[in-house]
C-alpha cells in the first residue's frame, strides 16, 4: 500500500509469507545435507571436502545421509554410465523436495575426457536427465571448488552470498 502510483492493492498477497519464507530459505541454505553417493574420482575429493582440512561441517553440510529420503543435496561426482543412469535418476526422485543437485567434475557435466567419437557407454552430461543447480568443473575439482559450489547453491537459495567474493589479483 501506498507505494505510489495506481497499484491495485489486491496485488499484494493477503497473508505475507515473505518473511517466513525468507527464514526457511535461510535455514535450508545453512543446513544442506548431502547424500552419501560416490561415483568416481571426484568422490574422493568430495570426501576430502568433508575431512579435517576443508571441513564442510563449518557450513552445516557434513551430515552425509546414506538414504536419499533424508538428503537435500545430490552431488553427482563422476562419470554417469548408461548402466548407472537409471539409478541416478531413481535416487534423485527418491529425495524429498526441496532438493538440489551439484554436478562435480567434467565427466558429469559433459562427459569430460570420456566423450569421444564412437563412445558407447556414458551419458554426456547428467543435466540431460535431471535438473542441475550448480556446476563445479574440474577433473577432479579441488575440495575448495566443491565448497565454492556449496556457496553458490546457498546464494541461489537465499539470494545473498555468505562470504564476499575474493578480489581477483591477476
Amino acid at each position: 500500500m501506498g507505494k505510489g502510483g495506481f497499484h491495485l492493492e489486491t496485488k499484494e498477497p493477503i497473508i505475507k509469507l515473505a518473511i517466513a519464507e525468507k527464514f526457511i530459505n535461510l535455514a535450508r541454505a545453512n543446513s544442506i545435507w548431502p547424500m552419501t553417493f560416490g561415483l568416481a574420482c571426484c568422490a574422493i575429493e568430495m570426501m576430502a571436502a568433508a575431512m579435517a582440512r576443508f571441513d564442510i561441517a563449518r557450513f552445516g553440510a557434513e551430515v552425509f545421509r546414506p538414504s536419499p529420503r533424508q538428503a537435500d543435496l545430490m552431488i553427482v561426482n563422476g562419470t554417469v554410465t548408461k548402466k548407472m543412469a537409471p539409478t541416478v535418476v531413481t535416487l534423485y526422485e527418491q529425495m524429498p523436495s526441496p532438493k538440489w543437485v551439484i554436478v562435480m567434475g567434467n565427466c558429469a557435466i559433459s562427459g569430460g575426457p570420456f566423450a569421444f567419437e564412437g563412445q558407447y557407454n556414458i551419458i554426456e552430461g547428467i543435466d540431460k536427465l535431471i535438473p542441475v543447480d550448480v556446476y563445479v568443473p574440474g577433473c577432479p575439482p579441488r575440495p575448495e571448488g566443491l565448497l565454492e559450489g556449496l556457496m553458490k547453491l546457498e546464494e541461489k537459495i537465499t539470494g545473498t552470498r555468505r562470504f564476499p567474493v575474493p578480489e581477483q589479483k591477476w
Binding site: 527464514f23 526457511i24 535455514a27 535450508r28 545453512n30 524429498p96 526441496p98
Partner: peptide
C-alpha cells in the same frame, strides 16, 4: 544456530 536451521529445514521438507 545450526540445530535451529536444521529443525526449520526439516519442518519445511516434503
Amino acid at each position: 544456530i545450526q540445530p535451529i536451521a536444521d529443525g526449520l529445514k526439516l519442518l519445511g521438507k516434503e
